[in-house]
Amino acid sequence: MTNNLTTEQTSDYDDLEQMNTFELLLNMNNEDKTVPRAIERAIPSIEKLVNIIHGKMKNGGRLFYIGAGTSGRLGVLDASECPPTFGVPDDLVIGLIAGGDIALRKAVENAEDDTELAWKDLQKYNINENDVLIGIAASGTTPYVIGGVIKAKEHNIITGCITCNEKSPLSLEVDYAIELIVGPEFLTGSTRMKAGTAQKLALNMISTTVMIKLGRVKGNKMVDMQLSNKKLVKRGVRMIMFELNVDEQTATNLLLKYKSVRNAIDGFNLNTNE
């Protein structure tokens, strides 16, 4: 089966150990340039899934990612960045990786080969038909992910996937398949490279677009971001200065008073109009 997978095909480059540093970097970069084109071809598929997620979230649903290895780590990363970026609850976008959180740092033997494990993991969060589940697997053959989406469909949960092979077993099981066909890797089979980059770009697009559609952005600013460090506080002050055309001290005072950029802007406008 794996012999037919694009992600497992032999690299277009050979004798890598004989290349000098510049040649290695240049050739990797040339391969990376093909990734945005693969994303562009998949935009219609991404659009369909984004609209489904948005509709479910408007009615109180959540988004789940499941994956193993690099794919699982990318899902957890995207989920973990939604609360600080958009000010949403920690349980609105949930990323799960085969083997649990320890697998974020080191491989957990056989975890991705367990077809029952993903559903057990998802049940801990009471996943239900109000939610959406996206399986992430570069190969599209990961048993952990396929098992999870099959069980989800049995419970009337909408499923999608992000994979880098055409008509993979995973794609054939889900309702909405996103296939990012990036071709063979520079280092044969190393899907943390082009495939991982493509998956990261797609995840960025999905979560950011959903959050914009949910009203978590004003203009082009992250007005609901968490002010969790000095850099972000300064960014918040600059947003308020720009939006309200006030000086830095006024913006700082507003942020201290209202505790968020959105509330500072709304509070200032409300008081001004009264």
Score class of each variant (00 low, 15 high):
residue 1 M to F: 13
residue 3 N to P: 01
residue 9 Q to I: 07
residue 23 E to A: 08
residue 28 M to C: 12
residue 32 D to K: 10
residue 35 V to Q: 02
residue 38 A to Q: 12
residue 39 I to P: 11
residue 45 S to M: 12
residue 47 E to N: 15
residue 48 K to A: 15
residue 56 K to T: 07
residue 58 K to C: 14
residue 64 F to Q: 01
residue 68 A to L: 12
residue 70 T to R: 00
residue 72 G to A: 05
residue 77 L to D: 01
residue 81 E to Q: 14
residue 83 P to G: 04
residue 83 P to W: 05
residue 87 G to D: 02
residue 92 L to G: 02
residue 96 L to G: 06
residue 98 A to E: 11
residue 99 G to E: 13
residue 100 G to K: 10
residue 102 I to R: 15
residue 104 L to G: 08
residue 104 L to S: 08
residue 110 N to Y: 14
residue 112 E to S: 06
residue 114 D to Q: 06
residue 115 T to C: 08
residue 115 T to E: 15
residue 116 E to P: 00
residue 119 W to L: 10
residue 125 Y to N: 08
residue 127 I to K: 10
residue 133 L to T: 13
residue 134 I to Q: 06
residue 135 G to N: 05
residue 141 T to L: 08
residue 146 I to C: 12
residue 147 G to Y: 09
residue 149 V to N: 09
residue 151 K to C: 13
residue 151 K to G: 02
residue 156 N to Q: 15
residue 157 I to K: 13
residue 157 I to H: 11
residue 161 C to P: 11
residue 166 E to T: 11
residue 170 L to Y: 10
residue 172 L to F: 08
residue 175 D to W: 01
residue 177 A to C: 10
residue 177 A to F: 03
residue 184 P to A: 11
residue 188 T to K: 05
residue 189 G to Y: 03
residue 190 S to H: 03
residue 194 K to L: 07
residue 194 K to G: 06
residue 196 G to A: 07
residue 200 K to M: 09
residue 202 A to Y: 11
residue 202 A to I: 09
residue 203 L to N: 04
residue 207 S to N: 14
residue 208 T to K: 10
residue 208 T to D: 08
residue 227 L to A: 00
residue 229 N to V: 01
residue 233 V to M: 02
residue 241 M to S: 04
residue 242 F to D: 13
residue 249 Q to C: 00
residue 252 T to C: 00
residue 259 K to N: 06
residue 259 K to R: 03
residue 260 S to R: 02
residue 268 F to D: 09
